[in-house]
Structure formats: C-alpha cells, structure tokens
Write a protein that binds this DNA or RNA. Sequence first.
DNA 1: TCAATAGTTCTAGAGTTCCGAACTATCAAA
DNA 2: TTTGATAGTTCGGAACTCTAGAACTATTGA
Lengths: 111, 111
Amino acid sequence: MRPLAHPALDDITLTGILHALSDETRVAIFVGIAGSAYSQRCAAFTTVSEKTVPKSTLSQHFKALREAGLIRSERQGVEMLNTSRCAEVETRFPGLIPAIIGAYLAKAKQR
Amino acid sequence: MRPLAHPALDDITLTGILHALSDETRVAIFVGIAGSAYSQRCAAFTTVSEKTVPKSTLSQHFKALREAGLIRSERQGVEMLNTSRCAEVETRFPGLIPAIIGAYLAKAKQR
DNA sequence: TCAATAGTTCTAGAGTTCCGAACTATCAAA
DNA sequence: TTTGATAGTTCGGAACTCTAGAACTATTGA
C-alpha cells in the first residue's frame, strides 16, 4: 500500500472539485463528511441514499474525493478516518463548497 | 437533425450541472456565454484558452451544456445562438452558478 | 442549382468507471 | 506468535464515455 496522496492547496483545481462531486454517491459521501463534527470511517458509507455501495467502489470514491482535495484521510488503527478540507478549499475558492452543499441539501429536502 | 433537447427546470440536476462544468473547455465556454450580454455562436469558441477545439468536439460540448440545462440554443439562419440559463438555474439552485463562475474567474486571474 | 458556412451524427480508438476477487495492514485474542 | 476478524486497497475485465476525423444535414446567398 502506497502512502495516501493529498494534493497541496495550490494544486486543487475547480474542475477537479466539480468532477469529484458530479457523482451522486460521491457528493452524498462528501456532504456527510462535511456536515459531521467528527471524522467518518469509510465503512460508514456502505449504504448511501438507500443504495448499497460495494467496498471496492467505495474505496475508489474516497480516493477520488481525496485526490480532488476535498477530504483528508488518515489511517487510525484498522480504519481510515476522513475529514473534509472545506476550510482550506474555502480560502482558495470562497463560497464554492457552501453553494454546492446548499444546493445538495435543498434538493434532498424537496422530495 | 432532431429538434434540440432542453430540459425543463425541474429536470435540471446538481450532479448534471457539476458534470457539465467539470471539463476545462466546457466551463470556459459556459463562462464566455454567461458573461456576454449577447447570444454567442458555437463557432465563437473554436479556440478556447489558446487551444483549438475540433468542431465535432465543440458540438458535443454544446450538447452537454444544453442537456445539463445550462444553456439554451436556437438556430438563427445558418448558425446557432446560445444564451445561458443562469437566471432560471438561479431559482432552482440559488448561488451555485455565481460561485462556480466566481471560482473560475478568480483562478483565471491568478496566472 | 451550386457553393459556402455552421453544426450534427457516425464511428473507431483511447480512456474511465464499476465491481467481484484477491490482496495487504492492523489489532486483539488464544 | 499464530490465528482470525475487520477495514480498506489493488487487480482485471466488462461496460461505459470521450475525442476527433469523415461524412452528413440545414440554411443562405450568388
């Protein structure tokens, strides 16, 4: 297993963020992490929006979020703890993440 | 040639928008259209960010933006006139498009 | 009718994504 | 110190998507 890759703040791109969040499952995971006061284990998202996500797929989704610069993952014993990088991203793209989370939550509420 | 498909406002999705704008060329085209007071022809974007875009690719990009609900395209004689649907999208996802355009322009300015 | 211009569609190759199977890493109990 | 359990990663093939050249359609003006 290679060490986990987290891009530097300057290497985070707008299109990278939009691509990472352009997937229903991934945006749901990200909102879940960003909205929690605590770090979240990957396994906390084995079901997302009432759908079961296979663990290999889940691992790929976390990798995508990590490489886009949206989350930071650290191994803690047998599990991975994931936290959002919202505060950092906010300094680079002010207002972007709140707008996306807001749009996600507003849509979720509608149904 | 089939008639052009424009989704109804209610059928516009967050992930659809993020996917459409997760491509460097497409986000540049969209910001160009959204930032202009006038309708833009497709051919106005044969070069985007100093890169030549083949016309079949350009046509696909416009289709993607159209199907995401971000632009409206109307044939005017021999050409297509494209306008943004920002105002409509704003009513569905308030603040989202301005945040993305803002992030795009801020990043462009940096270099 | 013909030619020119603007976009679209077709299609093949390149690249990406999904997910089951096999793997690795960590820890705790025997 | 093996063994087992749990958590996550990597591999590989099938399905899907994207790019761009070639051929096509639509409109207009000569």
